[in-house]
Design a protein around this nucleic acid. Sequence first.
DNA 1: AATGAATGAGATTTCATTCAT
DNA 2: AATGAATGAAATCTCATTCAT
Lengths: 214, 214, 214, 214
Amino acid sequence: MSEENQMLNLLIENQDGVTEKQKKILEAAVEIFSEKGYAASSTSEIAKKAGVAEGTIFRHYKTKKDLLFSIVAPTMTKLIAPFIIRDLNKVLDKDYEEFEDFLRAIIANRQAFAKENTNMIKILVQEIPFHPELKEQFTKNIALKVFERLKEVVVHYQKNGQIIELPPESVVRMLGSTIIGYLLARHIMAPEADWNDEKEIENMISFILNGIKK
Amino acid sequence: MSEENQMLNLLIENQDGVTEKQKKILEAAVEIFSEKGYAASSTSEIAKKAGVAEGTIFRHYKTKKDLLFSIVAPTMTKLIAPFIIRDLNKVLDKDYEEFEDFLRAIIANRQAFAKENTNMIKILVQEIPFHPELKEQFTKNIALKVFERLKEVVVHYQKNGQIIELPPESVVRMLGSTIIGYLLARHIMAPEADWNDEKEIENMISFILNGIKK
Amino acid sequence: MSEENQMLNLLIENQDGVTEKQKKILEAAVEIFSEKGYAASSTSEIAKKAGVAEGTIFRHYKTKKDLLFSIVAPTMTKLIAPFIIRDLNKVLDKDYEEFEDFLRAIIANRQAFAKENTNMIKILVQEIPFHPELKEQFTKNIALKVFERLKEVVVHYQKNGQIIELPPESVVRMLGSTIIGYLLARHIMAPEADWNDEKEIENMISFILNGIKK
Amino acid sequence: MSEENQMLNLLIENQDGVTEKQKKILEAAVEIFSEKGYAASSTSEIAKKAGVAEGTIFRHYKTKKDLLFSIVAPTMTKLIAPFIIRDLNKVLDKDYEEFEDFLRAIIANRQAFAKENTNMIKILVQEIPFHPELKEQFTKNIALKVFERLKEVVVHYQKNGQIIELPPESVVRMLGSTIIGYLLARHIMAPEADWNDEKEIENMISFILNGIKK
DNA sequence: AATGAATGAGATTTCATTCAT
DNA sequence: AATGAATGAAATCTCATTCAT
C-alpha cells in the first residue's frame, strides 16, 4: 500500500507531530474516500480500518470535511504543483534539444506519478467538483501555474521551430487532453485491462507530433 | 431548464404512465444529483424541489438508488448509445468523402449533445465509478459499442488512404481523448470561461489531422 | 400534570397543526428541562419520556435549542406579557379605589400564575441568563412593558394621594422584589415547606404599605 | 479579575498545597461556569483558558463535578456563612443604636460582597437548584444560620421598640427579598445599566422602614 | 395516487476520563 | 506533577423508508 501512495507519504512526512494513529487515519481515509467517494464514506468505517477509536479521528480533525481537506489541500498546494513545476524546470534547464524527447520525458514522469498516486488522484478528481474551496485551490495552485509553465515550454519550442504556430493555450490544452486522457483511461478507468504501455505511448507521441492524416 | 435536459426529456417521454409529479421528481433529482452528487443529495431535498411529499418519491421508486438508476440506466442503454450509433451511421451512410468533414460533423454533434445534457453528463461521470452495475452497463452499452463503430469508421478512412496506419484502437482513443477532453473543459469544468468555440474547434481539427510538429 | 402547565397548554392550543406526539414532546421537554436544566437534559431522555422516537423530535424542531426556544419564546411574547398587561388593565379599568385592594388582587393573581406554571417559570429563570436572544426578548416583551404599566399604576395612586412620592421606578422595583421574592421562595425554592399563604400575604401587604418601623 | 473574585481568592489561600496550575484551573472554572453554566462548560475549555493540559484538571479533581463542588462547597461552608455571621456579630456587638444604621451597614456590606463576587454568586444561584448536595449545604450552612441570626437581630430591635411586632421570620424574609432583589437586579441581571446606588439605597431603606403608604 | 408524520438505524460529533510517557 | 493522545460512551442530528390516512 505504501508504495501506492507516494503523495500521501510525503504529506505525512511533511508535517511534524504526526502520531502513528494519525498516520493510520490518513491512510485509511485515502483508501476509503477513493473507493466510495467522500460523501458515502463513514468516519466509523475509517476508524475501524485505521484501528482507532472514532473519537480519535475528531481529536485530530475537527470535522469529517476537515479530514478530507487536510488530505487534499496540502497535496495540491505543497506537493503536486511544486513537483510538476520542478520537473518542468528540469526539462527546460536540461534543454532537451528535441521536443519529442521532452514529450517522452514528461509522459514517463506523469505515468509514474499516476501509478504511484492512483487513490489520491481519484479523490481529487471526484471531490474537487463538489467543494468550491478545493476547486479554487486547484485552479490557482495547479491549473494556472502548470498551464503557464507549459505555455512557456511550448513557446520555447515554437521559437526554435519545432512546434507549429498555433496559439500556445490551444497547444497546451490539446497536449493535456491527450496525455491526461490516456492516463485516466490507463490508471483510473480501466486499470485492470492489459495495456502495452510502451506501444501506446509511442503511438501517442506520434499522434501528437504528426496527427493522424496520412 | 427543460432545454438543458434533452436526455431527461426523452427519458420521460419514452416511458408511458409517467405522471406529472413523477416528471417533477426526475427533474429535481437530476438537478440535485448533478449539483451535489448522489450520496450527498437527500430525498427530502429532492421532494421539496419537486414540490411533492417525501413519500411520493418512494411510491414511484422503491429506493433512492432506484431513483438514480432509473435516471442513469435508460439514459445509457436507450438514449446515448443508440443516438451515437445512429449519428455514426448517418455519417457512414452519407459517406463523407473527407475525413475532415466527418470529424467536423461529429464534433459539432457531440458539442450540441454536451450543451444540452450538462447535468446528465455530470451525473454519469460522477456516479459510474461508484456503481459497478452502472459501470458494466456503460462499458457494454456505450464504451464498447461506440468504440466498435468508431473503429469501423477509422478503418474505413484508413482504407481510402486518409488516415495513417496506426492501430485503429489507438486512433479512436486519441480521437476520443482530444474531443472529450475539450468538451469536458468546455462544458463541465469551466463553462463560465468565455470560449471562442469556432476557433478552438478549428485548432483541434488541425491538431488531430496534422499534429503539432512544424 | 396538565393542570400544572397552564402556559404550556395555552402554548399548544395557540398553534395549529400540533400533532399528538408533538404535544407529548413539549410536555416531556418542559418537565425535563425544568428538572435538570436545558444543558443537562438529553434529547433521548425527552424522547423516551414523550414515548416517541428520537428522530421525531428533530422532525418538529430542527435542533435541541429550537425545542427550548419554541417553548420559551412564545411563552414570553404571546402569553406572559399579554396576560400581565391584561390583568393590569382590568385593575386600572375597575379602578380599585384602594391601592391595598389593587395590591391584594395582583398578588393573588401572580400567586395563582406561579402555582400553575412552576415548571415554565423554572425554565425561564434558569435559561434566560444563558441565551442572549431570550434575554433580549424578556427585556423587551416582559420587563419593559410590565414595568411601564406598573409605573402608570403607581403614578395613578400617587396622584390620588395613596402612595408616597418616591420615584415610581423605585417603587415598582421594591414592590416587584417583595412580591417576586415571596413567590420564588414559595413556589420554586421551598415549595415543600408548609406555608400559611393567607397570613404571609397579609404580612407582606402590611410590610409594603407601612414598612417595619414601629 | 482577581479583585472580582474575593471569595475565590480566599478559597485558594485557605487551602494549602495549592499549586499555581491549580489556581489557574479554579480561576478559569469560575469564569467559565459563571458564563455558561456548569453543564454547558467543557473541561477542555477550562483547561485551555487555564493554560494547562486537559489531564491536569483530573489530577487535582477526580471528576468535573468534583471541580464544581470544590469551588462551591467550601465557599458556602467556610466563607460565606462565617463572614455573614461575623458581620452580624459585629453589628450586634457594636450595638447599632438605630435599626436604620444597622440596615445601612448591612446593605453596604452585602453590596460590597456582591460587587466582589459576581461570578461566584452566579454559579451558586445557577447550580444550587440542580445539585441536592449543594442545596442541602446551602440550606444548612447559609439559609438557616443566617436566618437564625437575623431573626435574633430583628427580635433585638423589636424588643427595644424600633421594629413592628410582626413574626420575625416574615420580617426577615421581607427584608431579605428587598435587599437581595435589589442586589440581583443591580449586579447580576442588569449590571451594565447606570445605577445611582446612593439614591436607590436611600429609597430602599425608607421603603423598608416606612412602606409606601402616604 | 398522494401525503407527511413517524420511525430507527446510523452518521457525525462531543466530552469526561484514562494512561503511557 | 504534568502532559496530551487516546478512548468510548453518549449526545445531537440526518435521512431513507414505512404506513395510516
